[in-house]
Design a protein around this nucleic acid. Structure first.
Lengths: 141, 141
DNA sequence: CTGCATGCAAAAACTTTGCACCGCC
DNA sequence: GGCGGTGCAAAGTTTTTGCATGCAG
């Protein structure tokens, strides 16, 4: 485990991530941090994100087309990415670790864990689509 | 849907992916393709991989530290990444789409599907570790 | 012929790294 | 003061894109 000295920048990055409900990318974090530390560099942001991830204090999320995203919430939860707006939201569901056992039935190695990425439509986009649908309907009548 | 004209390069890329059991990255595919088409460019490889993915004929896999990987097998199956050697292997298991419903119970949007990434130890590494373990044991006696 | 696909190279996007200086312990 | 952290900038990696040419329909 890496030894760490206290740093106000790292502290602030972690705090920022814990207060955010979405899961910002390194660049978004950088833009925000500049408001607090006008001279902070992108390198520092990346270095601290990597360090915090290594220490298990935040988690790194990997999605398709975009850059990496970071989550200050390390409790057990899943994520769902919206195919309309691309936002990544938390999704809590009961523990389904039994699928590790299920998965191991046809696998000759050792299944230790899993990550699930759900995809679909977020609350906002669902409402927007509904709205749009109603307008279309009233038009066609 | 994009209209496509036949292309020997695209054909070859798809065939190559279908015969591979692992899930090569764009660069690996490029290196291989150069044996068949010495003048093929990396740009063409990327363009065709994107096109084939869009057409649903192959699938793109996203993992943590590395570049994107591609899978010529689009049947329903999952993947497991080995934490020892980093290899990505197929993993077949019974359908568990019911977790979409489960997930939707606490989510205000629409859950449409999911991807699962398992992680653990692959067959080879498991055997190697066992071997190593036995040697250690016999040494300590 | 027409226009999508290709090869090539340049550029874009994202992330890492070397180095001198700064500030925590 | 010693050493890890920072800012800055340059470089590395992976992927995308513009353009002239080539090839499929």
């Amino acid at each position: 485990m890496k030894i760490t000295k206290h740093s106000r920048q790292r502290e602030a990055i972690k705090e920022f991530l814990m207060t955010r409900k979405d899961h910002p990318s390194a660049d978004t974090i950088y833009i925000y941090m500049r408001e607090v530390f006008p001279n902070i560099s992108l390198g520092t942001v990346y270095r601290n994100l990597a360090l915090l991830t290594e220490l298990g204090e935040i988690q790194k999320l990997h999605y398709g087309t975009e850059s990496d995203h970071f989550d200050g919430d390390i409790s057990l939860h899943h994520h769902i990415i919206c195919r309309e707006c691309g936002s990544i939201n938390d999704l809590k569901m009961e523990n389904i670790d039994f699928i590790n056992t299920l998965a191991n039935q046809n696998f000759d190695g050792i299944v230790e864990g899993h990550n699930i990425h759900f995809y679909g439509i977020c609350k906002n986009c669902k409402n927007n689509l509904k709205l749009k649908n109603n307008i279309d309907k009233s038009k066609s009548v």
